[in-house]
């Protein structure tokens, strides 16, 4: 039944999910803006770090904070190695970053299934068991943390990319690598660093989502599809449009699932994308900046 409490609940849930989408999307934007590459294996990269942290906590008895830190470290390592061993060695053919990272997606997902098993598991609580509001509207500590992280990453990320010398170097390396190299910017190092840092964001997002869901090797696939769609709608060469799309898509899906049931999420997203493709002017879909992808 529709009530104002339900409406607030749905909106807050969408906001928390959108915040985590924004955290994950920031890593994608960072990588794209500095290397013009797309990492389709981004989701499984975070998933492996999440599974590693859980294994360290449950099998080896490590403290939660330490297990989480090592899990993030695992994701950072995989992301950096993706650039070092794969992306920078690719032949200069269009779309090959998409192709090889699809291969990596298959590889990492199957590897996780082999190592951690195919059945769904529950993850660390990460504040999901700490109620913040619990009378008519239910909000837990994980929701609050998600929103704080999402807003902090969105604003902080904008500041770093636009108002710091690091951000200027990143944009210079993306705009013209040879000129950036000639003025002393270590373009290759900067790119690998961007890939590595993107691992932090997907690991945090993957762990936060894992605390809310039962997880298996495939749990990050639909999440990252939603995040990529936010990036596609907003344009990965921009900043605020994709970030706001992340929040918008999560709110839209929350409402679609509330109104049409749990199963309404996928067709609602599909309809949204088709409507946007039909309505958005061609110049906004122009991919002249997407060199490889």
């Amino acid at each position: 039944m529709f009530s104002s409490a339900n409406a607030i609940q749905v909106t807050l849930g969408g906001l928390a999910t959108g915040s985590l989408y924004a955290v994950i999307l920031f890593g994608i934007i960072l990588v794209f803006q500095v290397s013009r590459s797309i990492n389709f294996a981004y989701g499984p990269t975070g998933m492996l770090g999440t599974f590693a942290s859980y294994a360290l906590y449950s099998e080896f008895g490590l403290p939660v904070w330490f297990a989480v830190l090592i899990g993030i470290g695992v994701t950072v390592l995989i992301a950096a190695l993706t650039d070092l061993l794969i992306i920078r060695r690719l032949p200069p053919q269009q779309g090959f970053d998409v192709v090889v990272t699809l291969g990596e997606l298959l590889f990492l997902t199957a590897l996780a299934q082999l190592v951690f098993g195919a059945s769904a598991q529950s993850y660390l609580k990460l504040l999901t068991d700490v109620p913040v509001l619990s009378r008519n509207i239910f909000v837990n500590g994980n929701d609050v943390l998600a929103v704080v992280l999402g807003v902090a990453v969105a604003i902080g990320g904008y500041f770093v990319l636009n108002s710091t010398s690091l951000g200027v170097s990143l944009r210079a390396a993306a705009a013209d690598p040879s000129v950036a190299q000639s003025v002393g910017i270590n373009v290759r190092g900067l790119r690998t660093a961007a890939w590595a840092v993107s691992g932090v964001f997907v690991a945090v997002g993957a762990m936060m989502f894992a605390a809310r869901l039962s997880v298996n090797a495939f749990y990050m696939t639909p999440i990252v599809i939603n995040v990529f769609i936010a990036g596609m709608i907003g344009g990965l060469d921009r900043y605020w449009p994709p970030m706001l799309s992340a929040f918008g898509i999560a709110l839209y899906q929350s409402w679609a699932m509330y109104l049409f049931g749990e199963a309404g999420g996928v067709p609602a997203l599909f309809i949204l994308v088709i409507v946007i493709l039909a309505a958005v002017p061609k110049r906004l879909l122009d991919e002249r900046h997407e060199a490889r992808a």
């Binding site: 690719l90 032949p91 990596e104 590889f107 990492l108 997902t109 299934q113």
Partner: peptide, 20 residues
């Protein structure tokens, strides 16, 4: 039997990199 997707992913990466 579970090794095939792992090998499949690796093959896709290696082939795209070495023999495009």
């Amino acid at each position: 039997p579970n090794l095939f997707p792992i090998v499949g992913g690796a093959v896709m990466i290696v082939v795209a990199m070495t023999i495009p």
